[in-house]
Nucleic acid binder design. Sequence first.
DNA 1: TTGTAGGCGTTATCAG
DNA 2: CTGATAACGCCTACAA
Lengths: 338, 338
Amino acid sequence: MPTIKDVAKKAGVSVTAVSFVINNVPVPLSEKTKERIWAAIRELGYSPNRAAQSLARRRAETIAILFLQPVSNIFADIPYSQILFGVGSKLAQSGLRLLLIPPIESNEETPLRRKLHKGEADGVIVVGPIRQNDKRIKELDNSDLPVILIGNYKDAKKASCIDIDNFAVGYKAADYLISIGHKSIAFLGGPLYYSYGQERFLGYKKALEENNLPFDEENVHIAPATVEEGYNATLKLLEKENKPTAIFASTGLMGVGAIRALRDKGLHLPDDISLITLQEYPTSLMEIEPTAIVPPFYRLGLISAIALLKLINGERQPPIHKKIPIKIRIGSTTKPLT
Amino acid sequence: MPTIKDVAKKAGVSVTAVSFVINNVPVPLSEKTKERIWAAIRELGYSPNRAAQSLARRRAETIAILFLQPVSNIFADIPYSQILFGVGSKLAQSGLRLLLIPPIESNEETPLRRKLHKGEADGVIVVGPIRQNDKRIKELDNSDLPVILIGNYKDAKKASCIDIDNFAVGYKAADYLISIGHKSIAFLGGPLYYSYGQERFLGYKKALEENNLPFDEENVHIAPATVEEGYNATLKLLEKENKPTAIFASTGLMGVGAIRALRDKGLHLPDDISLITLQEYPTSLMEIEPTAIVPPFYRLGLISAIALLKLINGERQPPIHKKIPIKIRIGSTTKPLT
DNA sequence: TTGTAGGCGTTATCAG
DNA sequence: CTGATAACGCCTACAA
C-alpha cells in the first residue's frame, strides 16, 4: 500500500502538506497545490493507515459496545439487534470500528477500566437493562471515557443517558385506551428496578390520574418480561370478578404471552377485550396487526452513536440527556368501549 | 497508561523479554523471570496498545463485514442480526474489532480493494444474498484478502463459502411431508439466481424424485422472498383444481404470507392443509408454533468467524467450504394425510 | 508554504 | 537469555 510519503513524492510536495490536506488543517495552501495532492491521492489509491493514525493521534478510532446481558439472550432480543444496527450504520459511515464487549459480571476481578482503557476504545455505548446500583455502570460513570447509556441512570455524573421515551410509552398507551372509553385498564410490565420498567409504569399511572380513573393494584402485574409471565398474568386478570376491558402489555414478549392467553381462553380481540402491546419486531412477522407502541430502536442506536461521536470530538459536553419520541400505531386489537 | 517499557523496568528485564512473554514466543525464559514479568504486568494493569501492535505487526486486528444489501433492509432482517451476533461474539472473545461496511454499489467507482486494503481489515465476511455475477464478490475473490462468503459462490477461486445447508432445507422439508403421506406438495421460494433460492429448490425437487412423485410446475412459485409474494402465491395455489395438500414456504416471510392467505381463505392449519415454513425468528414471537426448518444463523456467524480467523492466522488454506446442518422442528401446522 | 526530525508503543532482528 | 535498535506510518512542532 502507498504511504503518505509516496503521495508527497508524486505530488512533489512535503508530507506535511499532504497531512494538512488530508486532515484539512486550516493552513493556507494554494488551491493548486491542494488539487495536485488530491490528484496524487486518487491516482495512488492512497488512504491513511488507521493503526498509524491511531498511534500518532492517541485515539483508538474505535467505539465499544458493552452488553450488560449474556449474548445468548441478547441475540434473541431483536431490539438489541436494531440498536446495534443503528449504531453500526453511523460508525460504518464515519469509518470507525466497533469493539463488542460481552457481558462482564459485576463481580469480575478485572476492572472494566482495563478492558476499556484509552487506546482500546474512544468511547462506550452501554446496552441492556440498567439497574441503578450496577457497579459496572458506576465504574464507567467515574472514568473519563465518554459514555452513553442506553437507558436511564439517575445518579449519572458524567455518563449520558439516551433512551426511547419510556414514560410516554406508558402514558400514550393508557391515554389512547382511555380516549376510546376504557376505564379498567390492566398493565403488564417489566421489573421496576429497570428504568424502562419503572418509567413505563409511571407513564401508565399518570394517564390514569390525569383522567381521574382509580388505580387498581390488581390490574398491575410487574414481572420479568417474558412470554410466560405475560401469559400467566393475563390468565389471572381474566379470573377477576370485574375484568379489565383493556390490557396494556408494555413489553413485546409479555404481549405475545397475553395474546396466547386470550386465545387459549377463547377470547377474541378486540371484541371481548382490547389489547395494546409493544412492537419490538417487524409486524410483518405476525399474523395479526396489533395496536402497539412502536419504539424506534434503530433510531435510538443511530442517535446514540451520533451523540457519542460528538462527545469524543469535544463538540458537546457530557452529560447529554435525550428521550426519543415514540409513536402509537392503531391496529386491529383495540376498539372503543361501548 | 503503562507501556511495555514500564513493565520491563519494573520487572528488571528487557522489553524483549516482556514482549516474548506476552506473545508467548517459544523462547526458553526461566519460569522465575516469566512469573516476575506477569506480576509486573498485573500490578501495573498493563495491556498492550492495540494501535502500536497493529502498526508493528502490520495487521489491522480488525475484520470487516460487508453487507450486500442496504442496511435499512438488513436491519429488519433478523437472520442477518443473528449472523452478526454470531460473528460478534467470536470477535469479542478474541478481542478483534469489527468494521461494518455498508453496501457498496457494484458500479461504484471506488474499488472495494481500497476500502478493504490491508491495514483496514485482516479479512472479510460477506453477508447478503449472493449472485454469481456480482462484481464486488469477483473483486474480493481476486484479492489476497481472506474472504468468507456466507452463501455459495460457485466460481470462487480463493474465497471460502460457508452457509446453512440449503439443499437440506428443501430436501428435509419435502421429505418430511412425503413421509407423512403427502403427494402434492407446493414450494414457495426465493429467486433462483440467489444460491439459497436455487439450492432449496433443488433439495425439494430431489426429495420428490427420490420418492417417485411427479414434479408439478404449477406447484412451484419462485419470487422475491416477501410476505406479499407468499400471500399471492398461496392464493393461486388454492384456486387450482387439484390443490396441493401441503405447502413448503422456504423463506420466513413467504411463510407468513402463506399463513395469512390460508387464514383469509378460512382454511385451518393443519386440518385443511399442511404447512412447513422457515423459522427465521424466535417462535416465541408467533402465535402458533409452525412445523419449520430451523436454520442456525447465530451458529453460522460464529463458525464463519472462527474459519476466518484460521485463514488469517494461516492455520488453514482457502478455500474452505462448509454446510451447516439444519433441523426440522415438528409443530402444529402439519399432520399426516389420511 | 516547506522540509526535518522526534515521538507514538510494539515487534522483530541480531549480535552478544 | 538480554539489550539495542531499526522499522511500522502518521502527526506535529519547529526552523527555514
